[in-house]
């Protein structure tokens, strides 16, 4: 679960993604709301980072902001260092050379993320054209290889099919094949299995892990499902109301959560199993971005809160090697153990 793929580590071709103080706000009708607030994390080569949190916590906006894909009227600040360059400061042409080529992205709903009126071949081909110098014939061969790679049966015969001619799971495979066209070193996956039923979910997750091994990619996997995290990720970053509230190795976080929100999330997952359930067990709802609570954003839902939580927003700070938490009372939370 935590091993960095040997090939990539040997070849040394991986790059580290270093995100620092990533902040994205939307200037909606005069009053800007901050959907992603000073988010920082690293993804080492070959690593799978899980980004977890309830719906609306800012996972998708974070992921999109990494490639400057947050929708208008978004404004993103901070830095996203990739291979020595700050993606947020790159000129458009350089940014395009990274998008789809070094860093690829897949979305939750393949039905809406694939263009309904273009054949699968066209949608792979345009990526190959943008990022390789292959001839038209070689691109077609490569497209078949890619569909093969993601496990589409009789790939050659499906090149000229349209997205609606595939089943949900196959469609997600097609999207992954398209994303892999540029041989990315980092794959951003925004809830790639949420729209699929459970057996297909497992297949897609296995596929992503398998590709990670074979191609030596790193992955950021957005999910609201801790079972998925347990099954696939090396590290995890827990998001709440636009901020990262806890990070660490998956095993450690599952063993000893230090943030009450993480603890609450874990309380909703059956112990030891890979069986999955939605994250619903924490009482209350996340705050609206337009009316954020004072101090710690989680305090209205927190059973560990004291006066300081109402007044001071706790910074995300390291407390052990490889672990960070943003909570005034994280030691107490850890001592309390799992619910």
């Amino acid at each position: 679960m935590s091993a960095i793929p040997a090939e990539r580590a040997r070849a040394g071709q991986g790059a580290t993604l270093s995100v620092r103080d990533l902040t994205t706000s939307f200037d909606t009708s005069g009053s800007p709301v901050t959907a992603v607030d000073r988010v920082s994390f690293d993804v080492e080569p070959g690593q799978v980072l899980g980004l977890v949190g309830e719906s609306g916590s800012g996972k998708s906006v974070t992921l999109r902001s990494l490639l400057r894909l947050a929708r208008a009227p978004a404004e993103t600040t901070g830095s996203v260092l990739w291979d020595g360059r700050d993606i947020l400061a790159l000129p458009e042409a350089k940014l395009r050379a990274i998008r789809g080529n070094e860093i690829a992205m897949i979305f939750q709903e393949p039905m809406t993320a694939l263009n309904p009126v273009l054949t699968v071949q066209r949608q792979i081909d345009e990526s190959l054209r943008a990022h390789t110098r292959l001839s038209a014939r070689d691109r077609r061969v490569r497209a078949i290889e890619l569909l093969d790679l993601v496990g589409i049966p009789a790939a050659a015969g499906r090149l000229d099919d349209y997205p609606h001619q595939f089943s949900g799971g196959m469609r997600q495979r097609v999207m992954i094949a398209i994303a892999l066209a540029g041989e990315p070193r980092l794959l951003l996956a925004d809830e790639p299995t949420t729209a699929l039923d459970v057996t297909i979910q497992d297949q897609i997750l296995k596929l992503i892990l398998d590709l990670r091994e074979r191609l030596g990619m790193s992955v950021i996997l957005v999910t609201h499902d801790l079972g998925v995290v347990a099954q696939t990720c090396d590290r995890v970053a827990v998001m709440y109301a636009g901020r990262i509230v806890e990070t660490g190795e998956v095993g450690e976080i599952f063993r000893e959560p230090h943030h009450p929100y993480t603890r609450g999330l874990l309380g909703s997952v059956p112990r030891g199993g890979t069986e999955r359930r939605p994250l619903l067990s924490i009482e209350g709802t996340p705050p609206s971005l337009a009316a954020m609570p004072s101090g710690c954003a989680f305090h209205p839902r927190c059973s560990f809160r004291t006066d300081i939580c109402f007044a001071v927003s706790p910074p995300l700070e390291p407390f052990a090697p490889g672990r960070q938490v943003a909570c005034h009372h994280h030691q107490r939370v850890a001592e309390a153990g799992l619910p």
Binding site: L95, R96, R99, G100, A104, T112, N115, E126, M175, A179
Partner: peptide, 15 residues
């Protein structure tokens, strides 16, 4: 312009 496949096209690094 609001469709996700346009975002996907952007994410692919197209002109």
């Amino acid at each position: 312009l609001n469709a996700e496949y346009v975002d996907f096209a952007r994410a692919k690094g197209l002109m």
